[in-house]
């Protein structure tokens, strides 16, 4: 097991290099110069001044050197300064992590709590009205654009019914609330974003769970378990479910990067100050330092997420944990 992990870790190094190279190349190649704050507001700026500012940022050196500088800086967790407001990129990113993480974790929890039982129940009642209805609904959910559903829900819940607030994470008079009121306020604001972020994955996961459970139920060892005299519920939960849930573990690992990737669209719609929105703003402002930093960060997390998923799967499935004798 340990050897397996070490091998995978080593294999990550070329991946890491590849990610950084490609990110760098893509951003540098994209047409349009990075706008530096100082001269974006001054249309009369002279050519020398521009050149001087570029030299300051190190943008005049050959690409190799720029890449090298960038990598060595990153290794020391120095992501440079935002080109749009001069603040350190690291600060801007880290202050947004908690909120994005929070929403995505809650969303993941929500998805798991609903998709797994739904999938299992559909599998058990295969072919029934319940199953068919749910399958149709999930199909629709899968095909519907998330931001559209958000708009519809916003229309219904926020405007027509007025149950939930439409944007932000706190209300205007937040500071005057008591502790308990503050919690409820944040909660109310978060319900909709958490819900809609999860809808897409809910559909996929539930369908996958259903398929996995059906397959597990048809395995020979299920018949053998019944032949032993096991009551049906034990057969289902101890034997079938345990096997069916295994591939879900991998999927969980794969959704780890999603935890920080943040959804640009949802965060913009709900005016939530998270990583996704930061990226959007940076993209609009052509703030290449922030853009590159976020892309690399999320890519690395994806890589780690995959590794964790593989390790978890390897641990949980004895066929991988113990090789054949």
């Amino acid at each position: 097991m340990l050897a397996y992990i070490l091998r995978r870790l080593l294999g990550l190094i070329p991946l890491l290099i590849g990610i950084t190279v490609i990110s760098f190349v893509v951003i540098k190649l994209a047409p349009g110069k990075p706008v530096i704050l100082q001269y974006s507001l001054n249309p009369k700026i002279s050519l020398e001044e521009i050149k001087r500012l570029e030299k300051l940022e190190g943008l005049d050196k050959p690409l190799f050197v720029q890449y090298g500088n960038w990598i060595s800086n990153m290794a020391r967790f120095n992501f440079g300064y935002s080109l749009s407001d001069g603040r350190p990129v690291k600060e801007k990113i880290f202050e947004r992590i908690p909120i994005t993480l929070c929403i995505n974790l809650l969303s993941l929890l929500f998805v798991l709590l609903i998709a797994i039982p739904l999938g299992v129940r559909s599998a058990l009642k295969q072919g029934s009205l319940f199953d068919t209805t749910i399958t149709v609904l999930l199909f629709l959910l899968f095909a519907a654009p998330g931001f559209w559903l958000t708009l519809l829900l916003m229309q219904l819940l926020c405007i027509q019914l007025g149950w939930l607030p439409i944007s932000g994470i706190t209300s205007l008079d937040f500071e005057y609330f008591t502790w308990w009121q503050k919690i409820i306020d944040v909660g109310r604001h978060l319900i909709l974003p958490v819900l809609v972020s999860g809808l897409g994955s809910l559909a996929g996961l539930a369908r996958y769970m259903r398929g996995s459970m059906i397959e597990a139920l048809n395995q020979p060892y299920i018949y053998a378990a019944r032949a032993k005299g096991l009551p049906e519920n034990k057969v289902l939960y101890k034997h079938a479910l345990r096997n069916a849930v295994l591939p879900i573990v991998t999927m969980l690992g794969l959704s780890i990067p999603g935890l920080l990737g943040g959804s640009v669209i949802f965060e913009s719609m709900f005016a939530i100050p998270g990583l996704g929105r930061l990226f959007y703003e940076a993209a609009m402002m052509r703030d290449s330092n922030v853009i590159m930093a976020e892309i690399v960060l999320v890519s690395i997390l994806t890589m780690l997420g995959n590794l964790i998923a593989d390790i978890c799967y390897g641990y949980v499935d004895p066929r991988i944990r113990y090789a054949q004798k």
């Binding site: 395995q219 020979p220 060892y221 018949y223 053998a224 378990a225 034997h239 345990r242 096997n243 295994l246 499935d317 004895p318 066929r319």
Partner: peptide, 9 residues
């Protein structure tokens, strides 16, 4: 096939 009829986990 005993291997198929035993739970691999």
């Amino acid at each position: 096939e005993p291997a198929s009829f035993l739970n691999p986990l």
